[in-house]
Amino acid sequence: MSFADSIRAQMPLRRWVMAAIGIGIIAYCALALNWSWLQTPKYQGMILEGVWNTIWILVVTMVLGFILAIPIGFVQAAGPWYLARPAQAFCTVIRGTPLLLQLWLLYYGLGSLFPMYPWIRESDLWPILRQAWPYAVLALTLSVAGYEGEVMRGAFKGVPQGQLEAARAFGMSRWGVFRRIWLPQAVARVLPTIGGETVLQMKSTPLVATITVIDIYAVASRVRQDTFIIYEPLLLLALVYLIIAGVIVALFAWFESRLPKRIA
């Protein structure tokens, strides 16, 4: 199929019309609405800082949460009951309560308990514990660990028994079986879902603004408070999140295309 043909297949007339209407709406928004605040250097700096905070919180909590999810899923799939039960309870609690509540429980709850202990206040960690971001990172990480732990449990269970027996028959140690056979095959099973989970996690990040972390959502709220402009910062916010979601989806699609599809 030539390039022109593929364009024709992808873009029939109605899509050109829709695209034209879309561009018209964007042009109207750009021209008719009040974007003067975007030109002030103060807000430009804040927006960049906010986007950066949103992105690093997303990446850090996804990575840490996934690392935690591996043991949580594994003990549920193959561990003894005294490890499996607490892991199961952890997943139930995380998945059964709103993230906003978990976040506030950690920030306001722990935050109000810590100052009562003098040794915590005197420790070197106190300047960090007084800030908001450690609680945001902790809450979002535990959330990923809870949801992904459940997914990993199914993935570990899904690896065929014969694979593990074959590895044992080759004389691999138990750790060797886990590291070389069990874990890679379980991770291969969940990889297609991680892109979607990352988008869901991105949609949870604005909650950290409620505990005074300055992410892009907090910046937009600040602009709205300062300037009394209602819609424009919200539209910018939606655009930023759409772009981040698009980048995440594209990244994972590229990543997946480079992996072998066959799963034992």
Partner: peptide, 20 residues
Amino acid sequence: LYTTMVRAIPELVLILILYF
């Protein structure tokens, strides 16, 4: 378009936009 937009924009932002 509807399902893609809703699934890509945080609920918190949608709540504010739709509410206002």
